[in-house]
């Protein structure tokens, strides 16, 4: 019998998130496709449609774990549901998404099932009959290759894998009405707030601030840089938003906005996976960072090794002079 691999299908109120379809592409990877008996699990109370959609699109057998108290997400409730699935399937490997919801349960599932845990994986490869995962440390400065231990729970960064191609034949759906006992947590509703930052979607040039900008005063340099370009906007990394340099609506990255401008200036941004997830599709990337080893330089077209407050004003003046000529 083949070992089992199981995918956790992340959804919000029955809407399957893109990252779940990315996980399904693992089931089509050379070596992995034949090595494992694949299944996927989804927990909730009204999830039959979502389960059917996932099975149809990916061709994977979906186990739908139903219970009324799973209407809303809680780590406690969803963990118990996935434990039920794990008892049924006994997977050698579980794949979940490295998102706030995925990270809420995956480490706990590993503990409850006595499995190893490997997180924030960027790349999966297969060699010598073993799965090799590449993850990142120190905001992307260091890569770590790990041979996945057996059995293991593994979280994959959203955007790291391509979305799964539409399957030729649909997978089966098995609905399980599960008993999860009484929950201590009382999950509440999900609120969507309309945030600012819509300008980023249409901007041709984005000047993005990171922690390295340092102070609100230095934002002036970035505004001057942006004003050199007609259709420009200012965005920022999570760290810049946390510091109050940029409004959260303008956060770019995994939990912020995804942008694809013609030109992206990364100013004092280290280049963590979470940030890169939101801007890697920019056509040209200019990174300005005083640390020559900053990982943002790995994906930049032009890398300026200098301090923001030194370089940007000089550059802005130079362009001003050229324009005056």
């Amino acid at each position: 019998m083949k070992p089992k691999a199981c995918i956790i299908i992340e959804h919000i109120e029955g809407n399957i998130r893109e990252c779940a379809f990315e996980l399904a592409s693992l089931a089509r990877m050379d070596h992995l496709i034949d090595r494992y008996d694949w299944s996927a699990a989804i927990a909730g109370n009204d999830i039959e449609n979502a389960a059917a959609l996932f099975a149809e699109k990916t061709g994977i057998h979906v186990i739908a774990l139903r219970n009324d108290s799973l209407e809303r997400f809680s780590g406690e409730g969803y963990l118990r549901a996935y434990e039920c699935a794990a008892r049924e399937v006994v997977p050698e490997i579980v794949f979940a998404s490295h998102t706030p919801l995925g990270c809420d349960i995956a480490p706990a599932l590993a503990v409850k099932r006595g499995m190893s845990f490997v997180s924030s994986v960027q790349k999966i490869a297969f060699s010598n009959e073993r799965i090799m995962a590449t993850r990142e440390r120190c905001n992307g400065k260091i890569r770590e290759d790990i041979v996945l231990p057996v059995p293991t729970v593994c979280t994959i960064m959203p955007g790291a894998l391509p979305a799964c191609k539409h399957a030729e034949t649909s997978g089966r759906v098995s609905v399980r009405n599960i008993d999860i006992g009484k929950l201590q947590s009382l999950p509440g509703t999900i609120t969507h707030s309309l945030t600012s930052g819509a300008e980023l979607t249409n901007a041709e040039v984005i000047v993005s601030a990171g922690r390295g900008v340092g102070t609100p005063q230095h934002m002036e340099h970035l505004r001057n840089l942006a004003s050199l370009f007609p259709r420009s906007a200012i965005g920022g990394s999570r760290a810049a938003c946390d510091m109050g340099l940029v409004d959260y609506g303008f956060q770019i990255g995994m939990t912020g906005r995804s942008v694809s401008p013609k030109l992206y200036f990364a100013c004092g941004i280290s280049g963590s996976a979470q940030h890169i997830a939101g801007m890697k599709n920019a056509r040209a990337i200019v990174a300005i960072n005083r640390d020559k080893n900053a990982p943002i330089f790995q994906i930049a077209d032009v890398g300026v090794v200098d301090a923001i407050e030194r370089f940007v004003p000089v550059f802005v003046d130079l362009v001003g002079d050229k324009k005056d000529l």
Binding site: S116, V118, E136, R137, G140, K141, I142, R143, E144, D145, I146, V147, P149, I285, V286, K292, N293, P295, F297, Q298, I299, A300, D301, V302, G303, V304, V305, D306, R310, F311, V314, F315, L318
Partner: peptide, 28 residues
Amino acid sequence: AKSRFHLPHRTKETHMLTGSCEENARAL
């Protein structure tokens, strides 16, 4: 679980500008 650490691989041909501030500004 034995980890192997390494630096990330470049995904692009990056023009690294490591000169003086003015040289870098002109090159950019």
